[in-house]
Amino acid sequence: MKKMFNRSLAMSLVALGLFGCAGEEDTIVMAPLPVVESQFTPATEWTASIGDGVGHYFSKLSPVYAYGKVFVASRDGEVKALDPETGKTLWEVDLEGDQPARLSGGLTASYDKLYIGDENGQAFALSVDDGSVVWKKDIDGEVLAKPLADESLVMFHTSKGTLVALKEDSGEPFWEINNDVPNLTLRGDSSPVSISGGVFWGMANGRLAAALIQRGQLLWQQPIGTPKGSTEIDRLVDVDASPLIIGSNLYAVGVNGQLVAIDLRSGAPMWKRTYSSATDLASDGSRIFVVTDKDHIAAVDVRSGTPLWTNDSLEYRQLTAPVLINQYLVVADGEGYLHWIDRATGKFVAQQLIDEDGIAVPPVETDDGFVIITREGDIKKMQIPEGS
């Protein structure tokens, strides 16, 4: 039977080499909040809420800004569309049926629909206009990652190692690709990405896969990490981070693995650097930014993989994936702070307490600001001061 291991604890144990003894979790110490002289303080334009949020559960329920709306969801099945200028609720639906919804995989907006999956193995398509359910389908395994919509298909990556493609308009199955899953994995899955008719995703067995979207034909697999060590925790090699495509190259990172640059046409690696992470990457075109399993933030050159800088001041603060907002690199942490970083130097430029409930997913940029959601479902639309 496959065992899913808690991400935050597992990543800390992997980093410290600890597993199996009582009390060892207590040796993992969150770094104190760094003292930052903020150059600016983003102002709050409006606030809203979405159910009880995600609580303490693992979740990738990031807000989505599309079709002139901000879409948000809570783990218990509530989904809303908000006006990005006022925060007013435009529509809301509750997807909880005979059993708790346990939403976790999503959101993706495309083809005038909002796609989302849950831990019960269900996939939903909602109308972006009014939230009505266009279709609902059972699929094999929990959906813990954001689906991909492309070439009139929507693709869900499940916890059973299956990538399943459904027709975007009806939800009818089109193809599926199955892969073996190790006995022990981190809780979470890689969100697929696509370009030029190909789909790419990371797998729990430490490999990156490529397939043709219209055929569901597997093209190649490239190892990102190789299982090593004598215990299951030592041998974790999940590739849970979503691959990153820049031009004709793809970049991927895995747990106990490497940050790898891959030529999309051949699937051959161009360079490799030793970084261990289960968190999505970010890039400004010339640099790649990675948050490691120790919550160190690093920048490497996109062409050569040469390390440019590392910031370890937020060690074990349960960081979100990094994102770019305006000219800055931004991460949020488990204590509810937002950290703004100079992407050229790695130095802090601003810091702000958003909410002591903590933040599980990174902020999402809109046309004139950004939206951030706390673990308890509080939503804030914020504006970056002029001149920042």
Rank of each mutant, 00 (worst) to 15 (best):
W175L: 11
F19V: 11
L212R: 04
A101Q: 04
L236T: 04
P42L: 09
A332E: 03
T226P: 03
I359S: 00
N6V: 01
E85Q: 13
D150K: 05
I116N: 04
I246G: 02
G305T: 11
L103N: 05
D263M: 03
G377L: 06
Y337V: 07
D26Y: 10
N179H: 09
G377P: 06
R303L: 12
T366L: 10
V70R: 11
V134P: 00
D355I: 02
R375S: 03
S38K: 15
F289M: 06
E386F: 07
K347S: 14
L218G: 01
G23V: 14
D355H: 13
I195C: 01
D368F: 11
D295K: 08
I372A: 07
E315F: 02
S38N: 12
V134N: 09
L82R: 14
S104H: 02
L264I: 15
N179P: 01
G171R: 04
M270R: 14
Y115S: 09
G141Y: 01
S313H: 09
S304C: 01
D293H: 05
K3D: 12
D180R: 13
G17A: 13
L281Q: 04
E376Y: 04
E85Y: 05
L9F: 07
S286E: 11
T89Y: 02
F289L: 08
G305I: 12
D150F: 01
A268Y: 10
A241V: 08
M382H: 05
S127Y: 01
A101R: 05
G106C: 02
K69D: 05
A261N: 12
R7N: 09
A22T: 15
T86E: 02
V54H: 11
V349G: 05
G305K: 14
A15T: 12
V349M: 09
I233Y: 01
G77K: 07
T292H: 11
S196D: 15
L314V: 08
T185E: 02
P173E: 12
S38H: 15
S304K: 08
V323W: 13
A48W: 07
P63I: 12
T226I: 06
T320C: 07
S62M: 15
D357N: 09
S190Y: 04
E92L: 07
E96A: 15
L126T: 06
K80D: 09
P182V: 11
G53T: 02
R287C: 13
K272Q: 08
S194K: 06
T320R: 05
D76Y: 07
L13R: 13
E119H: 00
P84Q: 02
G97M: 05
V302K: 15
A204F: 06
L61R: 15
D94L: 04
M382D: 06
W91Q: 07
L208I: 08
D130Y: 00
M270E: 13
L244Q: 03
L144G: 02
S304R: 08
T108G: 00
Y65N: 04
Q39V: 11
E172N: 04
G68N: 15
Q327W: 03
Q327T: 14
A145S: 14
E335A: 07
Q99Y: 03
L236K: 02
G55S: 13
E172Y: 03
K146R: 14
T108S: 04
Q122G: 08
D150I: 03
L324H: 04
Q352Y: 02
V255M: 00
G206L: 14
G336D: 08
P34V: 08
N326D: 15
S8C: 13
M11F: 01
N178Y: 00
